[in-house]
Simulated scan of single mutants.
Amino acid sequence: MASTGGPAAPRDPDWEGVRLHVVTGKGGTGKTTLAAALALALAAEGRRTLLIEVEGRQGIAELFGISALPYEERKIAGVTPAQLGLPGRAPGEVHALAIDTELALLEYLEMFYKLGRAGKALQKVGFVDFATTVAPGVRDVLLTGKACEAARRKGPDGRPLYDAVVMDAPPTGRITRFLNVNAEVAGLARIGPIHSQAQAVMRVLKAPETAVHFVTLLEEMPVQETVDGIAELREAKLPVGGVLVNMVRPPVLDAAAVAAVDGDHREEVALALAEAGLGGRARKPETVRAHIEPLLGPLLEQAREHSERVELERSQRADLQQLRLPTYELPLLGEGVDLGGLYRLAAELKRQGAA
């Protein structure tokens, strides 16, 4: 398991050859943040990545401090090797796209049925909203299809337009159904363009060029959802990627201190505080004790809480290790995640071999 130790040379990437990175995770784990950081890391060394949002929350725009993304691909960030602590001078680029379901369906209707203005008329009478509501599988075909098309699109020189595509996907509880679009539309269309599109999407999603990464925290519910989600993906024969453990806190107490917390150590702590000078200038033991006594309870309670947290994290790490997947740990950014924080997380992902 990778850790958040001090600076070190980046490892060779674990996902060489993967072009479509799907990022999922339980709500509140920082899924969008790490999808953005992964896109930045993948753009290092002169590469070009596309970051796709499918949930309509404009979370990418908020993270990068830009205006709401339209339904078109646009550059949102540059990445120099120096920003990620790498040698070299070739800058990379991150482009972004927020997929609008209605516009994606109109694009689809034009592509396969050449509806043109008729498609716009369908939008005005509410057909598009009706279609994606009564047939949610069609909506998912449109969303995943756009990402798959971008991953395989060629530029004028015949080379892939993007070196990697990162999809900020729906949460863990919905990810298998979202990606397993072929099964979702089977009952709606057994032949025709929708069926063909779903099959084309599934060929990309099940190919070695795709990996589904899970974002989690070292807490019971997110870890359990991760374990369950990975089991569902494996059952559906969809490609499982790595586990991104977010918001990892640095240890405050060493193992010996954690193990000693359960005992009654008031006298030892009081003596240590006195030796550290927290009794003020008083010389009489009873006066020193009077200064220190109010501190003992809160300090010991915090130590117990930290000990419980360390034990919980230890057990959750053990559960994640049972998955036998590449695992990366990202630090808790106490000041919050701004653009600088995103680059810091990207550098950590790069260092640990996630990109």
Rank of each mutant, 00 (worst) to 15 (best):
A2N: 13
S3R: 14
G6V: 06
A8M: 09
A8G: 12
A8N: 05
W15N: 11
T24S: 15
G25I: 04
K26H: 13
G27T: 07
G27D: 09
G27C: 04
T29H: 04
T29C: 12
T33E: 07
L34S: 08
E45I: 01
E55A: 11
R57S: 11
R57M: 09
G59S: 07
E62M: 02
F64Y: 13
I66E: 06
P70Q: 06
R74C: 07
V79M: 04
T80Q: 07
P81T: 00
L86V: 05
L97V: 05
L105Y: 10
Y108S: 02
L109R: 04
M111T: 14
F112Y: 15
F112E: 12
Y113K: 01
A118C: 00
G119I: 08
G119C: 07
K120D: 15
K120W: 05
A121T: 12
A135E: 05
D140E: 15
L142S: 02
T144I: 08
K146N: 01
C148T: 14
A150L: 08
G158T: 09
L161T: 14
D163N: 13
V166S: 10
P170H: 09
F178N: 08
F178P: 02
L188T: 07
A189L: 01
I194M: 14
I194K: 00
H195C: 02
Q197G: 01
M202G: 03
R203Y: 01
V212D: 05
F214A: 08
M221S: 12
P222E: 10
D228W: 01
I230D: 04
L233M: 05
E235I: 02
E235Y: 05
A236K: 06
K237D: 15
V240T: 14
G242E: 06
V243S: 04
L244H: 02
R249M: 12
P250W: 00
D254W: 10
A259L: 12
A260W: 12
A270H: 04
A272Q: 12
A276W: 07
G280V: 06
G280M: 05
R283G: 11
R289Y: 11
R289G: 10
H291I: 01
L296K: 13
R304A: 13
H306F: 15
E311G: 03
L312V: 13
R314Q: 14
Q316M: 15
Q316P: 04
R317S: 09
R317M: 13
L323R: 09
L323I: 06
L323K: 10
L330Y: 10
L332N: 03
L333V: 02
E335C: 01
G336N: 09
V337G: 11
L339C: 03
G340M: 09
G341K: 11
A347G: 12
E348L: 13
L349D: 09
Q352H: 06
A355G: 11
